[in-house]
């Protein structure tokens, strides 16, 4: 193991230990202040050590913003799963979502950043808060102060993280200049839709324009290319949202339709599940057990 892998092991061990100390006790015992403080200190130390992995190839200010957003995302994540009060958990999750939106912005996905804030922080978390307030009106519950096998859960989760880190460092260490597999098609003329070559019908000689490059060129349409500095010239002038819409409604049209249908079905399902039903009175239950078919039918009509 080289230096990076030792550092990854160290970070993950410290982070796992800190998270385990911060999680609620298995049998609901109150953890001492000292234990919680140790857990918090270890987690903060792991977060600071994690930033040793962030490389900074770009200019100064984006790196600072990346560090801030990444640290607050992971830190808020730890606080989400360790808060005893579910309301605080939901609020810390809102912080995770906001930090993730900042990361999206840094990666050039501004529409997605806005959409994530609107959908997650604006709709989903508010719904979660509504449900929490509906369901937990009387203070803190016992099950919020008890964890289910916290040691095993922390061990498995951070073992997974260690495996991912190991794989990532294996890719990173050899050359340092890993190239993406998609070939850069530099001119728009390469995107001209090729006619179906004859070798699909008869096993004739392979055309010069076929092979992996041919397959990639027909799979990656010009609308699917990101409008950045590597794109061919006509792509650079397209605005962000217009280009995203172009690829959504040409290359991924069926996926968009399926997503809309899914939202509709989820709406119908949620309404049909959560609507309150007429309470069943004891008289009706006696009628059911007495075997009165007319009464039972009327009851079934009423409860449905």
């Amino acid at each position: 193991m080289n230096r990076d892998q030792w550092l990854a092991t160290c970070v993950i061990f410290l982070g796992g230990l800190g998270t385990w100390l911060l999680l609620p006790h298995k049998h609901g015992k109150i953890k001492a202040r000292l234990t919680q403080g140790c857990g918090a200190a270890l987690s903060i130390l792991a977060l600071l050590l994690l930033s040793a992995f962030y490389t900074s190839p770009g200019p100064f200010l984006p790196n600072v913003f990346f560090w801030v957003f990444a640290t607050s995302a992971v830190g808020s994540g730890i606080l989400t799963i360790t808060s005893r009060n579910p309301v605080y958990s939901a609020l810390w999750f809102a912080s995770v979502v906001l930090s993730t939106s900042g990361l999206f912005l840094l990666a050039g996905a501004s529409f997605l950043a806005a959409g994530t804030i609107i959908v997650y922080a604006g709709a989903i978390i508010v719904t979660f808060l509504f449900v929490i307030m509906l369901a937990q009106s009387e203070g803190q519950a016992l099950y919020d102060r008890m964890a289910r096998a916290p040691g095993a859960a922390t061990l498995s989760g951070f073992a997974l993280l260690w495996a991912v880190f190991y794989a990532l460092l294996m890719v990173r260490s050899p050359g340092g200049d890993f190239k993406p597999v998609v070939p850069r098609l530099t001119s728009a003329s390469e995107f001209v839709k090729p006619t179906l070559p004859g070798n699909f019908k008869n096993s004739g000689p392979v055309l010069p324009g076929s092979g992996p490059a041919f397959v990639l060129a027909s799979a990656i349409r010009p609308t699917a290319l990101l409008a950045d500095d590597r794109a061919p010239a006509p792509k650079k002038s397209v605005p962000h949202v217009a280009a995203l819409g172009a690829t959504l409604f040409t290359d991924h049209l069926i996926a968009v339709e399926v997503a809309g249908t899914l939202l509709f079905i989820a709406l119908v399902g949620a309404i049909s599940m959560a609507t309150p039903r007429t309470p069943i009175r004891p008289v009706d239950r006696e009628a059911i057990s007495a075997g009165d078919p007319a009464q039972a039918r009327a009851l079934a009509n009423m409860t449905n």
Binding site: T19, L23, P24, A73, V74, G77, I78, T80, I81, P86, S89, V96, T100, A141, Y143, D144, M146, A147, R148, A149, P150, A152, A153, T154, S156, G157, F158, L160, L161, V164
Partner: peptide
Amino acid sequence: LMAIGMVGFLARRN
């Protein structure tokens, strides 16, 4: 984020 979410899903009871 993925690993932390997994820990929370396995460990919390709410």
